[in-house]
Design a protein around this nucleic acid. Structure first.
Length: 545
RNA sequence: GCGCCUGUGGCCCAACGGAUAGGGCGUUAGCCUCCGGAGCUAAAUGUGUGGGUUCAAUUCCCACCAGGCGCACCA
């Protein structure tokens, strides 16, 4: 079966609408829902309810006609034999019940093809650039950056898996005010270390690491004017190591300093000027962002002649398109959400659609220790760093935890719970299922075979487990639509649960040969699916634990 | 003041306008002669308030209440 069963059924529905002359009144796109409750079948549609008013017939009446027609169309179609029953239920829902034959065939694909069987090609090779973290190189990464890193990397993994060509990028703010302040901070700390009495301004970087950099700068004989760059480079190395240990790699570190040196900012301004989108007022240069739906126009060159933050960003994003990316995804902290409309305005000014730039706001995580909030202040250098979370909780638990809520919601992260190696901790629940399967497969010296008779899998828990495995691709689709990988963690927990329930009631080993073989194949498919999901989340898949 | 996000059992949450509002934690009571008990089974507690749209609203719209965040010629 080339097309998936869902698409086939939708096509049959469309044909039935035409046959019943109902297609003219129903103009919307036809979709099949996954019912929340398995009692309502494998697919469901509310089509008859929605048609009721338009066609001036009762919902159940329409549903019955549709089902009649569907049953007729099914004969001889590629879906024949895969649909057990189509029923009208409730107020007029049409519910589709698939046959076991369908599930066995899909399961076989996974056993034979492995993880690739889950790959649905939704991306079709489209070039997408995901820019995330992009923290200023002025200190260690915080938990806020950690969540962005976890979300961004998993989203990138997921998009890659479903056929996009993904590039991960970190925009490096290695020039400007904050680097000057960083340099100033190092200079003052250096003087302090030399015994001078200094007044340390409140907006300078207060963290102790500044002392370390000051010492090092002295050893290397760095001159005052080079302190900012020196410190930024030093801190960047720390950030790179932190991300690496977190399992996050970037394809490109895009330097703002390099961008400034090139003529790209000027040439982007030239383009805007030609299109009458720049004007001078009160000694500053303004971008007419209101032409593209922004609340007000924005300054790009201040009256003192320097660029605002937006200026290089306009050129930077135009450059992204020129580099061949047709879809841009940016992950930002919630403090930047006011910035979305002006950046969208800027890409539109260059003729790109507003939708080609997607901004995902990653909400903050509140850290709890022993049930109490840990208060943070970046300015004072008092904040929980990615490094601390890694040291205390470890990579697996922290990456999983950061994805356990919708990206747009606040996340409470209790360090003590994440540390626990008990059932309270969902990471271990999922990993345990994987290790348990590995253990069984090991002791049976299992190797997948083509000719296994999967139709021996008849138990309720077995069928439920197969269905759960097959849901994986629709979860990937949800991740794409919501631009949020968080559903993966929900799914992994459900799949693990489904497996544990099966395991508790049915023995795999020691059955008659054919049944043991079928059950080994089933749990192998669970293993493949768990492993794939864990990889996308960025968590290890232990064979023993 | 304007804008964005969030209000669901003791606590944390649940993609899609649908069917008896699902799950987890915690609590209580059970389950190992048996493939890994980091597991399984069972019990109890409910949509912030007031309107509206709809055959159908936790979901959409309006107002209000509560909490968080943002509103720079900062980055």
């Amino acid at each position: 079966m080339e097309k998936n069963i869902q698409e086939l059924l939708i096509q049959l529905l469309k044909d039935s609408l035409v046959k019943l002359k109902l297609d003219s009144v129903f103009q919307e796109e036809l979709i099949l829902d996954f019912p929340t409750d398995e009692r309502f079948g494998d697919f469901s549609t509310n089509l008859a309810l929605r048609l009721s008013k338009l066609a001036k017939r009762s919902p159940r009446d329409i549903a019955i006609s549709l089902i009649d027609s569907l049953n007729g169309q099914l004969e001889g179609s590629p879906a024949e034999g895969f649909v057990k029953e189509i029923k009208v239920e409730g107020a007029g829902f049409i519910n589709f019940y698939l046959s076991e034959k369908y599930f066995y065939e899909q399961l076989k694909r996974i056993i034979v093809e492995g993880r690739d069987a889950h790959k649905i090609n939704l991306g079709r090779g489209k070039n997408v650039l995901i820019e995330f973290v992009s923290a200023n190189p002025t200190g260690s990464l915080s938990v806020a950056h950690a969540r962005q890193a976890a979300v961004g990397d998993s989203l990138a993994n997921t998009l890659e898996f479903i056929g996009f060509k993904v590039s991960r990028e970190y925009y490096l703010n290695d020039e400007g005010n904050q680097i000057n302040i960083l340099g100033g901070s190092v200079e003052l700390r250096g003087k302090e270390l030399a015994g001078e009495k200094v007044e340390f301004p409140e907006n300078y970087y207060q963290g102790d690491y500044i002392y370390d950099i000051a010492k090092l700068a002295k050893e290397k004989g760095v001159r005052t004017e080079g302190l900012g760059d020196f410190a930024a480079e030093y801190i960047l190395e720390i950030i790179k190591k932190e991300l690496e240990d977190f399992g996050v790699r970037f394809d490109c570190w895009y330097s703002q300093k390099e961008l400034q040196k090139s003529a790209k900012i000027d040439s982007s301004f030239e383009f805007l000027r030609k299109n009458n989108l720049l004007y001078e007022q009160e000694g500053a240069l303004w971008f007419k962002s209101t032409e593209f739906g922004d609340d007000k126009d924005r300054v790009v060159i201040k009256s003192d002649g320097s660029y605002t933050y937006l200026a290089p960003d306009i050129a930077y994003h135009e450059e992204k398109y020129k580099r061949g990316f047709s879809w841009l995804i940016n992950l930002w902290g919630p403090d930047h959400h006011g910035y979305i409309s002006r950046l969208k305005a800027s890409v539109q000014a260059f003729g790109h659609s507003a939708d080609s730039l997607c901004v995902v706001i990653v909400q903050l995580a509140t850290i709890f220790r022993e049930g109490k909030v840990v208060h943070m202040s970046t300015r004072k250098g008092q904040y929980i760093t990615l490094r601390e979370v890694l040291d205390e909780v470890g990579k697996d638990a922290s990456r999983f935890f950061f994805l356990m809520r919708r990206t747009s919601s606040h996340l409470d992260f209790d360090l003590d719970v994440a540390k626990k190696q008990t059932s309270e901790n969902p990471v271990y629940y999922v990993q345990y299922a994987h290790a348990r399967i590995c253990s069984i497969l090991r002791s049976a010296s299992f190797a997948p075979r083509q000719d296994t008779d999967l139709s021996l899998l008849k138990e309720k828990e077995e069928i439920a487990l197969i269905k759960k495995i097959l849901q994986f691709s629709s979860v990937l689709n949800v991740c794409l639509v919501t631009l949020d990988p968080y559903m993966l963690t929900v799914y992994l927990q459900e799949l693990a649960e489904s497996f544990h329930k099966f395991y508790d009631l049915h023995r795999v080993l020691g059955q008659h040969d054919a049944l043991t073989e079928a059950r080994l194949s089933l749990i192998d498919a669970v293993k493949i699916t768990l492993a794939t999901g864990l990889e996308l989340v960025g968590v290890s898949k232990p064979e023993k634990m």
